[in-house]
Design a protein around this nucleic acid. Structure first.
Length: 424
RNA sequence: GGAAGCUUGGCAGAGCGGUUGAAUGCACCGGUCUUGAAAACCGGCAAGGAUGCGAGUCCUUCGUGAGUUCGAAUCUCACAGCUUCCGCCA
């Protein structure tokens, strides 16, 4: 949610900056609703003030045992008008809020301008893709040959498309990756480990910005009469730890890391990445979430990207860092870096992490604040990033570490977790 | 699933129809005192919003929603959450 005052005072400028996020701000609608809102709110509050004053007076007169019938008559008609104006005011205010809830965050000045991924900017490339002197296999074939380590048929039988079973050493490698990432963040990067709920309520999803606009991307379920949703990322559950809080300034920043499954309907991506584990309805991710002072969020973003990169460096996987252009960034983000890992079978880099500074966009929706040195409550900034997507990391390890005989070398940093150095 | 109780400010805890946005204590912030600290004493201290250049004025909020009333933290109804006991259960 953007600051309404920003819209009231700098409407043209804000609308222009939103174009960078491919959003057409309806200035006419906003101005009309805002004007009505103002009138109705002033009138409502006038009537309320009058009612309050009269009621107070009646109380005083009654205490003195005096007659109150004159004032009672005066207030008699007030209730009906107040109720009518109030109803109309609520109606307009709700319309206004409903519209504002669909407006994306403003992009930071440093964000490249552009509509799609072709305008993204490569920031740096680390590591060199390995030269294979044999025909590379993709992870599906590698997984199949390793004692049926990845079983898509079973996934389809039990759940449907975009689900898979991992078996044996592949399942173990998957677990090792998640453990390694979490250990790295908690011991080297100063993160606090979190275990979070995987089902959340609608309010939490509103707070992080998935609702009301992106409900079709979510798996929805019920508990009694309440809607519950499977988290599409633990960004949702973990960031909402800050919802409604007023932190002390010196408590900031909070750095949380959470390993969780993520559930996405992938509506609208039919036919894309249908082979393999690149795009699944359920995948594991080790997430990083920062709750920070607003002056520090952009440096925190750079630091967070470093933490994600450290995972790839430790695994010795070639990758590149991409600064997303405005049109390719998500709804709530002010600035996003993607990390893309080398996938030999596709001869290209594929997204394995996305780190975003949401500035005060989520904080305003969930009223996450801190008390500054002047005693004033101010919104915190929130950031989130993958560190990393575990399923895709598994793909990258299998493919980059494959050998001519179909075996896979275990990356050094994972050997203590695996208890072996080669998978056959 | 059955039964009972509870839900007030950062926390604890009064209030049960009328100057109550809410006593009191703790925490926190400022001051006096002190070589310094502690103690003691004095003062301050909820959030959101409207309006205004500003001082300010006003509105809303005592789990949530609806109702009764000129007036609700206080009365009524519905819902939710929490706690304890019983049953079931990984």
């Amino acid at each position: 949610m953007l600051d309404v005052n920003l819209l009231r005072n700098n409407l043209d400028e804000i609308a222009e900056r939103l174009v960078i996020k491919k959003f057409k701000f309806d200035k006419e609608l906003f101005n009309r609703l805002e004007q009505e809102r103002k009138q109705l709110q002033i009138r409502t509050e006038e009537l309320q003030a009058k009612r309050n004053a009269s009621s107070k007076q009646i109380g005083q007169l009654k205490a003195k045992g005096e007659d109150t019938s004159a004032i009672m008559a005066e207030v008699a008609g007030l209730g009906d008008e107040l109720k009518a104006v109030e109803t109309e005011f609520n109606n307009i205010a709700n319309q206004l809020n409903a519209y504002l809830a669909t407006v994306p965050n403003l992009p930071h000045e440093s964000v490249p301008v552009g509509n799609d991924e072709t305008a993204n900017v490569e920031v740096r490339r680390v590591g060199v893709p390995r030269d294979f002197d044999f025909q590379v296999k993709d992870h599906v074939d590698i997984g199949a040959s390793l004692s049926n380590g990845i079983d898509f048929e079973a996934g389809a039988k039990v759940s449907g498309s975009r689900f898979a079973f991992l078996k044996g050493n592949i399942a173990k490698l998957h677990r090792a990756l998640a453990q390694f990432m979490l250990d790295l963040h908690t011991t080297e990067h100063g993160y606090t480990e979190i275990y979070s709920p995987y089902l959340v309520n609608a309010n939490a999803l509103y707070g992080t910005g998935q609702l009301p606009k992106f409900e079709e991307d979510l798996f929805k379920t019920k508990r009694g009469d309440d809607d519950m949703y499977l988290i599409p990322t633990s960004e949702v559950s973990v960031t909402n730890l800050a919802a409604g809080e007023i932190y002390k300034e010196e408590e900031l920043p909070f750095k949380y890391s959470c390993h969780s499954p993520c559930f996405r309907s992938e509506a609208g991506s039919y036919g894309r990445d249908t082979r393999g584990m690149i795009r699944m309805h359920q995948f594991d991710k080790v997430e990083m979430v920062n709750i920070v002072h607003p002056d520090k969020s952009f440096e925190a973003l750079e630091a967070m990207v470093q933490c994600a990169e450290n995972v790839l460096k430790a695994l010795k996987l070639p990758y590149r860092v991409i600064a997303l252009c405005g049109g390719d960034m998500t709804f709530g983000s002010a600035k996003t870096y993607d990390l893309e890992v080398w996938v030999p079978s596709q001869n290209t880099y594929r997204e394995i992490s996305s780190c975003s500074n949401m500035t005060d966009f989520q904080a305003r929706r969930m009223q996450a604040r801190f008390k500054d040195s002047a005693g004033k409550n101010r919104l915190v900034h929130t950031l989130n990033g993958s560190g990393l997507a575990v399923g895709r990391a598994l793909v990258a390890v299998l493919e980059n570490y494959q050998n001519a005989d179909g075996s896979v070398t275990v990356p050094e940093v994972l050997r203590s977790y695996m208890g072996c150095d080669i998978l056959k």
